[in-house]
Amino acid sequence: MEKKYIHSVVRITNNQLMHNGELLLTRSAEDSSWPVEMYRGLHLQYPKFFKMDNLCKVGFLAAELAMKDVGVSPETEKPDFSVLLLNSTSSLDNDISYQQTIADETNYFPSPAVFVYTLANIVTGEIAIRHKIKGETSFYIQEKFSPATLSDVAELGFMPHKGIREMLIGWVDFLEDKCDVLLFRISVNPENSISEWTDEEVSRWYEAGVQKK
């Protein structure tokens, strides 16, 4: 089994945004749009952000930070790079929005712009487009965050025949204002890494975002 190394880690909870352990932003108010607040707080310029659903928004934001120190521009094609994500609620946040557009027969207005986001893997596509990532993209769903499953997925993603050297991998979940994101950039290259990828490290970074009373 080839060793893997964590190069960047982003954690987003209901009210905090952290990058490599550093707290970057705290939500200003309970009723703010947290994804939009983060976008403004990070001073990003990517107008397509505003047409995305919440799941894509938070996945996109996490990827922006995780790719910050990747060493090449977003425009550089990345053929040996993958995006492998998991969550619990799939695209349900946006599915509920879409359902509202068809629920009432007298006010029936199904919109392709909303419908397209009723698939969880669209977030892997948005991230791939932004960073010209042309390796594998996959989205898996399980009940709860599991470091062991994440490690299995990473292991599968680096199987030698795939020729993949680097990936964004993690948990991206958003439902009705509840945000739970843990995104890693990992590589087979140890140079400039934060630590080796282990189940314990993955758990530690996840717990780092759990609010302590």
Binding site: S88, T89, S90, L92, L119, A120, N121, S138, F139, Y140, I141, Q142, E143, S146, T149
Partner: peptide, 23 residues
């Protein structure tokens, strides 16, 4: 939730492993 259906399918066959959903 998709995971719930996956769980019920696994349970129907008394399979001990978690059933991942590919979406």
């Amino acid at each position: 939730h998709l995971w719930r259906s996956a769980q019920l399918i696994g349970r129907f066959f008394k399979n001990p492993n978690e059933v991942l959903v590919v979406s």
